Simulated scan of single mutants.
Amino acid sequence: MPLITKVSAQKRADRYNIFLDGKYAFSASQQTVAEFILLQGQELTNEKITEIKQFDADAKATNLASRFLSYEPRTIFEILQYLKKHGISDESADSAVDQLTNLGYLDDQKYVKLVLQNNLRIGSDGPRAVLQKLSAKGVAPETSQLELKNVADEAWLPVGQRVLKSMKSKIGKMSERELKQKMRAKLLTHGFDSGFSELILDEIDLTADDDDQLDALKKQGIKAYKKFRRFTGSERERKIRNYLFTHGFSSTEINSFLAGEVISEEELDEY
């Protein structure tokens, strides 16, 4: 039966070299040495050596995972990927995950709840974006969907309003219709579907007063005139009309601009 003939400290803190029958056999952490009382003169069976090595590998995996968790909450998938990156075997990684799960430090459902709480409080991701990000972190779709269903539609309103906050400054610079179109598009890119988008837009006052709307018509009308000034007659008028229509202005507003009631042609020529 192999005999421990020497236990020496490594340069790395808390690691020790174990010598059996005068030859280096394996290394172990201080935790492992204490757990199995590895002292000079102790005899070890081959089965006990295997048990010691597995315990040491599992402890290393758990300690690595614990440090990784100390910086911020993680999903089970993230922990497994991190341990794999550090050369931890699947067996030890699974052991670490089981231990941390039993201790309550790893729980994908709690992780989803935390992500949702933070996003609803200060974030800018809609439901679909949240779902995509959770999926990228390895959370099972059914786990995410279960928690998303518990969030009332009204709870997403502040999130959508944060997304659109900077765009409210565009009131008076473009038509109300065009501004709404751009806002819908932005909400879609942030993971809100059309239903949520309309719910959010209904809560935002985008109505421009007469002066704001007139300023927007002037601004876009001048842009259109400068863009198509090289054309003449009905061709220029047609292009300006189409331009203003695509920017959300009504036929009445467009006719008013083309008639020179908003800004005269003499003034336009100065631009």
Rank of each mutant, 00 (worst) to 15 (best):
Q81L: 12
Q81H: 11
Y82Q: 12
K84G: 13
K84T: 15
K84Q: 14
K84F: 07
K85C: 01
K85V: 10
H86D: 12
H86Y: 13
H86W: 09
G87T: 12
S89P: 06
S92H: 04
S92P: 04
D94M: 12
D94C: 10
D94A: 11
S95N: 14
S95Q: 08
S95M: 03
A96S: 12
A96M: 05
V97A: 11
V97H: 03
V97Q: 02
D98W: 07
L100K: 03
L100D: 02
L100C: 04
T101C: 04
N102E: 12
N102K: 15
N102R: 15
L103W: 08
L103V: 10
G104H: 09
G104R: 09
G104F: 09
Y105H: 12
Y105K: 13
L106Y: 02
L106F: 05
D107L: 04
Q109D: 12
K110D: 09
K110T: 09
Y111P: 03
V112W: 00
V112H: 00
V112M: 02
K113G: 02
K113Y: 00
L114N: 13
L114I: 09
L116W: 02
Q117C: 02
Q117P: 00
Q117N: 13
R121Q: 13
I122T: 14
G123F: 01
G123H: 01
S124V: 12
S124Y: 06
D125L: 10
G126I: 03
P127H: 04
